[in-house]
């Protein structure tokens, strides 16, 4: 299975990178853009064939290393490899 972990800055944490991207988009004429937030995507290849197992493994990895709960939140999506 493939697990896609999306790590984003928590909503209450200022994201200076997102702000800079928003400013750049505005200066390019994309006036419609409001708030922008920048995160990262981590794709994990897992040996298991069980979606439930893949999810619980990926969540454990996110809690232990991939995301820092002080500043980040994460979501896990499971895909057939």
């Amino acid at each position: 299975m493939k697990a896609v972990v999306t790590v984003m800055p928590r909503d209450d944490v200022l994201d200076p990178q997102g702000k800079a991207v928003a400013q750049a988009l505005h200066s390019l004429g994309f006036a419609d853009v409001g708030d922008v937030r920048v995160g990262k995507t981590i794709v994990l290849e897992l040996a298991t064939t069980s979606a439930a197992e893949a999810r619980s493994e990926a969540e454990a990895m996110a809690r232990k290393l991939l995301a820092n709960p002080v500043i980040e939140q994460f979501e896990v999506e499971i895909k057939d490899a």
Binding site: L14, P16, N68, I71
Partner: peptide, 17 residues
């Protein structure tokens, strides 16, 4: 130390990037 949980909080990107 913050990542290890030995001190609270985190160090974010500098305000001016």
């Amino acid at each position: 130390l913050t990542e290890a949980g030995l001190l609270p909080g985190a160090l974010l990107r500098n305000r001016g990037l």
